[in-house]
Measured scan of single mutants.
Amino acid sequence: DEDELTGILKKLSLEKYQPIFEEQEVDMEAFLTLTDGDLKELGIKTDGSRQQILAAISELNAG
């Protein structure tokens, strides 16, 4: 699971946030449920980064 998540972050060039997800024990299943508020709480402060992550999440959820 973590590897898939790392792959997604790398694709977005946001792998610098990978340790945050690891630290908070966010797995792929949890990742797919994250909201903008969750990402802010995790410490992802950049709007653009959150938008990219949320776009990836909705794409993955759309299947």
Rank of each mutant, 00 (worst) to 15 (best):
E59S: 10
I57S: 07
L60E: 10
E15N: 04
L54E: 07
Q24L: 06
N61G: 09
Q18L: 11
G43I: 00
D47F: 09
S49W: 05
L60N: 07
E41R: 12
Q24V: 04
K11P: 01
I53F: 04
R50N: 02
E15K: 00
Q24F: 07
A62W: 04
F21E: 05
L32R: 14
L32V: 11
T35D: 14
V26N: 02
E22R: 08
S58Q: 08
S13N: 14
D1Q: 13
K40C: 08
E59N: 08
G63L: 09
E22I: 00
A30D: 07
E4L: 06
Y17T: 03
T46V: 10
A55I: 08
N61E: 08
I44Y: 01
D1M: 15
D38R: 11
G48E: 15
K10N: 04
S58H: 10
Q51L: 07
D3K: 15
L12Q: 03
K11Y: 03
L12W: 12
L14G: 00
Q51T: 09
E25A: 14
E22Q: 11
K10H: 05
S49N: 13
D1S: 14
T33C: 10
E23V: 02
S13D: 15
R50A: 04
T33A: 13
I57R: 07
K11I: 03
I8H: 08
A55D: 12
F31Y: 03
L39D: 03
T35L: 00
G63W: 04
A55W: 05
T46E: 15
R50H: 03
I57N: 04
Q51Y: 04
G37W: 06
T33M: 12
L60A: 09
I8D: 03
L32M: 11
G43D: 08
Q24K: 12
A56G: 14
G63E: 08
D38H: 05
Q52Y: 03
I53N: 04
M28Y: 10
D27W: 00
E29H: 05
K40A: 10
I44A: 03
K40M: 08
L60F: 13
G63C: 10
L5G: 00
L54T: 06
L14F: 02
T33E: 13
L9R: 00
I44Q: 02
L9S: 01
K45N: 11
K11E: 05
Q24A: 13
D27F: 00
I44W: 02
A62E: 14
A62N: 12
T46W: 03
F21Y: 02
E25M: 13
L9A: 00
G37A: 13
I57D: 02
A30K: 13
L39K: 00
Q51M: 08
T6N: 12
D36A: 08
D38Y: 00
D3E: 11
E59C: 07
Y17A: 03
K11Q: 11
L39E: 02
L32Y: 06
G37Q: 12
L39T: 01
L12E: 00
D3P: 09
A62P: 06
E41T: 13
G48N: 10
F21W: 00
E4F: 12
Q52W: 01
S49D: 15
E4P: 02
G37T: 12
A62G: 14
A56W: 01
L54I: 10
A55V: 06
K11R: 12
Y17S: 04
Q18R: 13
L9F: 11
F21V: 02
A56V: 10
I53T: 06
G43M: 02
D47R: 09
Q18S: 11
D38M: 02
F31G: 04
K16V: 10
E41L: 08
L9C: 01
D3C: 14
D27L: 00
E29G: 09
T46P: 12
D36T: 03
E22K: 11
Q18T: 11
M28T: 14
L5I: 12
Q24Y: 10
T46Q: 08
L60Y: 14
L5T: 02
S13A: 12
I8M: 15
K45T: 13
E23M: 06
P19T: 10
E22M: 11
L34S: 04
E59K: 14
Q24H: 07
F31T: 02
M28N: 06
E22S: 12
L9Q: 00
F21A: 05
R50T: 01
I44D: 01
Y17I: 02
E15C: 06
I57K: 05
T35Y: 01
T6A: 15
L54C: 11
